[in-house]
Design a protein around this nucleic acid. Structure first.
Length: 355
DNA sequence: CGCTTTCATTTCCATAGTGG
DNA sequence: CCACTATGGAAATGAAAGCG
């Protein structure tokens, strides 16, 4: 152990000859040449970003002491960043990219190159684990788990100002519909770009009674009509046998929308005014259950959706029976009436045999 | 000119293949 | 026999073209 943070000037840092991105370079000159050869434009882009925003403070260079030269360090992690910095310091080494690095170098505040935040490790071995985590994927979750479409959309809508229509649809459904059973984690599972492909098609929008202005989604139908059809679409999206290719081209989308049939909103119920999906008040929990106010905690007022109540407790000695019981607590009867019926029969017959 | 649609590139995923 | 890797194909996303 003993990784210590330290600010080191550019002049005291060396490129790593053993950089895994490169195939056997001889000298640091080669390293730079090879890095530029491999990904010149990416490094240029990074240099631009550094000039504009400075160095990413959350991600510092990992260095180890130089083997020969006292007082110098070798950069073992962050070589792309370091190459960008080095070329910002000495654009004359950038070969064919020189002309493009020069103006960037002129704009770079000098202080940046004087003290580059690094973390010093005593030996290369001690860096291996951390480098692996950064570069070899998720590592069962120990490493970097990259964002999917939904996470990205959330970020774009939240932190950046860009509105994502798909996200508004999902948030709307979370507020206004009971997402349970197969749809419980639908908001995480749907491919948001596919959803947006549908609702960004003007013809589809017309059928669904939606409009999008500056990324904000509006509906001209009452909430329950909107919910009905959006829920259907989301259900299709997570159903497994549905993906982009079903709505890839305009013609596909047309077919798909008409296949929604009565799940489309009823034109008779069209409202005069459009309203924003985001601003609709939440729907009351159970519109029908007025008298029996379920203020008491404990029992759920929601109608049961499975054959065996999920709370049902029984000691079942038989392995297979136990798992069948478990499955019957999860299988939504509405959606799988036959499977549920057959399973129940098997469950009963096996139970009798077992007794 | 901005919004749609189509095309191209990148990324993801499943499966066959390979070696321990 | 199992676990891991390479590979091809499909899907998602980004970019360009097209259209009104």
């Amino acid at each position: 152990m003993g990784a210590t943070p330290k600010n080191i000037p550019l002049s005291k840092l060396s490129l790593d000859i053993q950089n895994p991105r490169l195939d056997n370079p001889e000298s640091t000159k080669d390293v730079i040449a090879a890095m530029l050869e491999q990904q010149g434009n990416k490094i240029l882009r990074m240099a631009e970003d550094i000039v504009e925003h400075g160095l990413d403070p959350s991600s510092i260079l990992m260095v180890i002491p130089h083997e020969e030269k006292e007082d110098r360090y070798v950069v073992v992690e962050g070589n792309r960043r370091f190459t960008a910095l080095k070329l910002l310091g000495h654009p004359e080494n950038a070969g064919k990219y020189e002309k493009r690095f020069k103006p960037l170098a002129d704009r770079l505040p000098e202080s940046i190159l004087k003290a580059i935040p690094c973390v010093v490790f005593p030996t290369r071995e001690e860096t291996n684990h951390w480098i692996k985590l950064k570069h070899t994927g998720e590592n069962e979750g120990a490493g970097v788990v990259t964002w999917g479409g939904i996470e990205r959309a959330r970020f774009e809508q939240g932190a950046l100002k860009r509105n994502r229509p798909g996200l508004q649809v999902l948030d709307f459904l979370k507020k206004h519909a009971d997402l349970d059973g197969e749809l419980k984690d639908a908001p995480q599972k749907v491919s948001i770009t596919t959803l947006e492909r549908i609702i960004q098609d003007p013809d589809a929008r017309g059928e669904l009674g939606l409009t999008i202005e500056k990324g904000h989604v509006y509906s001209v139908y009452p909430a329950d009509e909107t919910t009905k059809c959006l829920l259907r679409i989301v259900r299709d999206l997570v159903s497994g046998d549905f993906n982009v290719k079903d709505v890839y081209y305009k013609e596909d989308r047309k077919k798909y929308i008409s296949s929604l049939a009565e799940d489309r909103p009823n034109p008779a119920k069209r409202l005069k005014e459009k309203h924003s999906l985001a601003e609709l008040p939440s729907k009351p929990l159970s519109p029908t259950g007025t008298g029996t106010t379920p203020t008491t905690r404990g029992k759920s007022t929601r109608p049961r959706r499975t054959l065996i109540p999920p709370t049902f407790a029984a000691e079942i000695g038989h392995q297979r029976l136990r798992t069948i019981c478990h499955e019957l607590k999860k299988l939504p009867v509405e959606d799988y009436p036959n499977a549920a019926a057959v399973m129940l029969r098997v469950f009963l017959e096996l139970s009798l045999d077992h007794v």
